[in-house]
């Protein structure tokens, strides 16, 4: 019999095992699979990691945010428009986009809490709104030639063994560290968990429910915009159709990382594992070379189903048997 605490960590343990198995088999099977391939996981999935961290906050609190990809896409387009067409200073633009993302999240949170509308609906409206705005700015991508952006995009740190890692990947990992600290060591973080456990109880226990809920969606909005900024460093342009479906990848990564969709249980470290598994699937299929990239979706889909079933099993076993 597993202890309850162990059982809660079971999905994350399964994910970690899966990840190690994938890395080991990748190492054995493909001669070109080396340390750099591992760093590339972080480099190529930094924006997904940041978006998934925001999604983790929302899902832990018992909500959902579908606007992630649209807000990220809008951030790239709006930033590109300000820098290229209006000639604004790039670092200032980045701050502005982050502020807009945060504000958007805050407003959606307010609509969810004060108007008592399903988060699904509110953030779906957010998705349409921001995706629409992308195309209002321009139908085509706008490439950014800016020394500051290029500087960050091309900054690489040399690591032992001839490998290297980008600054963006570092930034993503820093966001992860901050999120882990906030969730585990700050009262706000514990209030997010309490809210996801039971909103009614949280209220009666004196948790500032309104403030916490608004803050959770603001964090998600901030992370979405941040993911957009990392996109800019990655492709050095704004693209109206970038980030389509990012929210779904983020939710998948969160679930694979062991966070319960009903809220209240999970960690951002689990989310990191989920993102890395997601990335490994892509990497392996790349190395395989012959398979259609849609196999990534099929594989992730099956994985997601397996994890949802695992969650179901956990929840079912948690309820005590009737006497």
């Amino acid at each position: 019999m597993m202890s309850p605490a162990m059982r809660r960590r079971l999905p994350a343990v399964v994910t970690a095992t899966l990840l190690v198995a994938m890395i080991v088999s990748g190492y054995l099977r493909y001669p070109k699979f080396d340390g750099q391939a591992i760093y590339d996981l972080f480099i190529d999935n930094g924006f997904l990691l940041v978006a998934a961290i925001g999604a983790t906050f929302v899902i832990l609190s018992g909500g959902i945010d579908l606007s992630v990809g649209a807000v990220a896409g809008f951030s790239t387009m709006f930033a590109a428009w300000l820098i290229v067409r209006q000639g604004w200073t790039s670092w200032l633009v980045i701050l502005i986009v982050l502020a807009i993302g945060t504000l958007a999240g805050l407003l959606m949170g307010a609509a969810i809490h004060y108007l008592e509308i399903q988060p699904f609906i509110v953030t779906l409206a957010g998705l349409f709104l921001f995706r629409g705005l992308c195309f209002v700015i321009d139908d085509n991508s706008i490439s950014i030639r800016d020394p500051f952006i290029a500087g960050i995009a091309e900054a690489r740190f040399q690591l032992p063994g001839g490998t290297s890692i980008t600054l963006s990947a570092f930034i993503a990992i820093a966001v992860l560290a901050v999120a882990a600290y906030v969730l585990h060591y700050m009262r706000f973080g514990r209030q997010v968990y309490a809210l996801g456990g039971s909103e009614q109880s949280a209220l009666l226990m004196g948790v500032p429910v309104a403030r916490t809920k608004l803050a959770v969606y603001a964090v998600s909005g901030f992370c979405s915009a941040f993911a957009g900024v990392l996109y800019i460093f990655y492709i050095q342009s704004g693209d109206p159709s970038i980030g389509v479906g990012l929210e779904l990848d983020a939710i998948a990564a969160v679930v694979i990382g062991g966070t319960l969709l009903t809220g209240g249980t999970g960690t951002v470290l689990g989310t990191l594992l989920g993102v890395l598994v997601f990335g490994m699937v892509k990497t392996i299929l790349n190395f395989e070379g012959t398979l259609s990239s849609w196999w990534v979706r099929i594989f992730v889909g099956s994985l997601l189903l397996a994890f949802i079933l695992l969650q179901r099993l956990m929840v079912a076993r948690k309820t005590p048997a009737p006497a």
């Binding site: 514990r190 968990y193 309490a194 996801g196 039971s198 009614q200 109880s201 226990m205 209240g264 249980t265």
Partner: peptide, 11 residues
């Protein structure tokens, strides 16, 4: 009981 069952006893 108006507590959060997902949190630990101490929390």
């Amino acid at each position: 009981v108006n507590l959060c069952t997902n949190l630990s006893v101490a929390e």
